[in-house]
Simulated scan of single mutants.
Amino acid sequence: MGVRSHIAGPLAALALGLFFIAPAMGEPAALTKKQSDALSAYNASRSHFEQVLKQRRAQIHSNALPNLPGQALYLARNDMISAYKDLTDALPSRIGGPNKYGIPPAYFDAGNEPLLDEYKKLFDLMQAPPANAQKSDTPFKDVVDLGTAIARARGLDAANAEAAGRISLGLFFAETNGNQNIGNARSNKYKGSLQTGVPEDQSGRRKWSAIKNKIAALDPALSDRDDREEARAGNQDHRFNHWTAVRDGLMNAHADIFPQVPSIVKTLPDAIDQMKLFELIQIIPSPTKSALASRDLAGYRISDPKIMAYLRNNSMFTFGQADRARTSATFREILDAMWLFNEKFERALAKFEEIKAGSKS
Rank of each mutant, 00 (worst) to 15 (best):
A151W: 02
D201N: 15
R152S: 05
A164D: 06
A131S: 10
F172P: 00
L156C: 01
S136R: 02
N181I: 00
Q180H: 07
D157C: 08
K189M: 11
L146Y: 06
Q195C: 06
I150N: 08
V143L: 06
A131V: 13
P130A: 00
L156Y: 05
G197W: 12
D201W: 15
A151D: 01
G165F: 11
G178I: 01
A163P: 14
S187T: 04
E175L: 10
A131R: 13
I150W: 03
N160K: 13
S136A: 10
F140D: 07
Q180A: 14
A151Y: 02
G197I: 03
E175A: 03
A161H: 07
A164S: 08
P199R: 14
T196Y: 10
T176I: 01
E162D: 15
N132D: 11
T176C: 01
G165V: 04
N160W: 09
N132E: 07
S136L: 08
A128D: 04
V144D: 05
T196C: 15
T148C: 05
I182T: 03
P139V: 09
P139E: 09
F140L: 12
F172N: 03
L146W: 07
N188K: 13
L171S: 05
A131C: 03
F140H: 11
G147D: 06
F173E: 03
Q134Y: 02
K191E: 14
G170K: 01
P130T: 00
E175S: 04
G147M: 02
N177P: 00
D142M: 07
R152N: 02
A163G: 14
K191Y: 15
S168H: 07
V143W: 05
A133D: 05
Q134L: 10
G183W: 14
A133C: 08
A133F: 10
R166F: 08
R186V: 11
A153W: 01
N160T: 10
G165P: 10
A128Q: 11
E162H: 15
A131F: 09
